[in-house]
């Protein structure tokens, strides 16, 4: 198998594994986004539903990998079509399981809402000792590049193919030399900005604490990646698998840590999220016109989703998309120079 095809199949396998475990990353009393008896997932019916979903998700993964092998690596849709097929198929399977669990085994809990009367309201504390070092490391990298400016080659690679060979080059200019550092700082700011938004615009739940901490810790593999890329023109040699390995290891570790926090039975939210399953369309999309919250803790998986009934959510989504695209646009700009 060509290295190019292998590099396209690897993300499919990674996402397929995530889909296999996604239903397990949930609070006690929630199964496939439906409210159930906390012991139901361990019952015979619970295990049967999970097994059935897993087989379906595995089938979608096999179909996606098959499509990947059939499509030419040069085909413009090769990079996204198989992934889209797997995500859409697995989401469909998930929705069907949500309906089954909600209809046959669902429970209804009273919609008791609770507000903290403390002022100022409890917010997540941002640990400066956690988020300042990545920015400091990027600043030091920039200073190091500046000090060794004369050692930088006139032309250096800025993009590599799946086979690890450079396929795009750039000349020695400030925009291109410092681009990885600037993009890294931008990405870090986006992560911190998201963490700040969640801390301000969401309820005080265990998910908020996990998500904010997770975003802070994710700054480290991100920063390390951009530092390695920034130092490559100076002759730094790293194996092609190193950066994906760092990111995957960190993500896997963080998912495991978050999972342990979420499933812990003793943890109660200071301000619980709304309880009714009726707010969760297809088990995945939160839609509650009476709820002024923009961000709502996901029922399954880690992190937040938006309240699609709140018009402000579209503004927030557009802002996040723009912020996410900005570093990429800078990268393309720098590569063209």
């Amino acid at each position: 198998m060509k290295a190019e095809v292998a590099m396209l199949i690897l993300p499919l396998v990674f996402v397929a594994v995530i889909f296999q475990f996604t239903p397990l990353i949930t609070r006690r009393g929630i199964f496939f986004s439906a409210t159930v008896d906390p012991e139901f997932p361990h019952s015979a019916d619970g295990r049967r539903v999970l097994r059935s979903y897993r087989w379906q998700a595995a089938l979608w993964a096999i179909l996606a990998i098959g499509l990947q092998l059939v499509l030419s690596p040069r085909h413009p849709l090769t990079a996204i079509l198989p992934m889209l097929l797997m995500i859409a198929g697995s989401a469909l399977s998930y929705w069907l399981k949500f309906r089954e669990v909600h209809t046959h085994y669902g429970q209804r809990r009273p919609e008791i809402r609770q507000a903290e009367l403390s002022v100022p309201p409890a917010r997540e504390r941002f640990n400066a000792w956690l988020w300042i070092p990545p920015f400091a490391a990027l600043a030091l990298t920039a200073a190091y590049l500046q000090l060794h400016w004369n050692q930088l080659p006139e032309r250096f690679p800025v993009h590599w193919g799946a086979d690890g060979q450079p396929n795009r080059w750039s000349s020695r200019e400030p925009l291109t030399v410092f681009a990885p550092v600037v993009i890294g700082a931008g990405m870090n700011l986006v992560m911190l900005g998201l963490a700040w938004l969640f801390s301000q615009l969401s309820r005080n739940t265990i998910m908020r604490r996990i998500t904010v901490r997770l975003l802070e810790v994710l700054l480290y593999p991100l920063t390390l990646t951009f530092i390695i890329v920034a130092l490559l023109p100076l002759g730094l040699v790293v194996p092609v698998w190193l950066i994906p390995a760092i990111i995957l290891t960190c993500v896997a570790g963080l998912i495991f840590w978050s999972y342990r926090q979420i499933v812990a039975p003793a943890i109660a939210d200071a301000v619980p999220e709304p309880q009714s399953d009726s707010y969760w369309k297809a088990g995945m999309f939160y839609y509650n016109p009476n709820d002024p919250a923009i961000f709502v803790a996901k029922r399954v998986g880690i992190g937040y989703t938006v309240n699609f009934a709140n018009k402000m959510c579209w503004l927030v989504l557009a802002g996040i998309l723009l912020l996410g695209l900005l570093p990429a646009a800078l990268g393309v700009l720098a590569a063209k120079k």
């Binding site: 809402r113 609770q114 507000a115 009367l117 309201p121 615009l201 309820r203 005080n204 002024p292």
Partner: peptide
């Protein structure tokens, strides 16, 4: 002091 109207409404899930 009581929480702001915005914060209280968000916590309680009301308008």
């Amino acid at each position: 002091e009581l929480p702001s109207v915005r914060r209280m409404a968000m916590d309680l899930g009301v308008h």
